[in-house]
Amino acid sequence: MTTKSIQQPEPGFVHGLFLYLLVFTLWMLLVGNLDTAEMAAGVVVALIVTLASRPHLSILAGLIISPSALLPLLRYLGTFIVALVQANLDMARRVLSPSLPLQPAVVEVETKLKSSLGRLILANSITLTPGTLTVDVQDQVLLVHWVDAPPGSDRVSTTKAITSKFEQHLKGFVL
């Protein structure tokens, strides 16, 4: 899914710290209690995992780690949950209606997100939103299978319809 032809941002110390906290949080969630011994083990394990995944840290480099990224993240999550529920109601309606209303086509959409992480999150969001499924990512262009593509739509209109609502929030916390 990742492409290498676009210059990717370099990961910094904050990204390592972020990964460490993420792994530690995951450890604590899996353990499910706040024992001191478990926490101590988590501190060590998270450190080992973080150090071991240093070669792959560049995946996280697109992440903007600052307090100002929090609000876009929350807005994005809100948009995403609404879209997920809409997608399911839409899919249920299509599946249950006897005539099976479909007009599928593979369309192209554009993204301004530069980092592979940003495009990964965008692609995943598209897959879970009404009637669309990301098929491939080629640099700035995403191939999307659309269940109900309006005839004669071009790249500009599909981009507006599919990606813009996510991208406006996504660009606040990912490059």
Binding site: A92, R94, T127, V147
Partner: peptide, 8 residues
Amino acid sequence: QAGTKAVT
């Protein structure tokens, strides 16, 4: 499409 969305 149907499988992924609804099942998720």
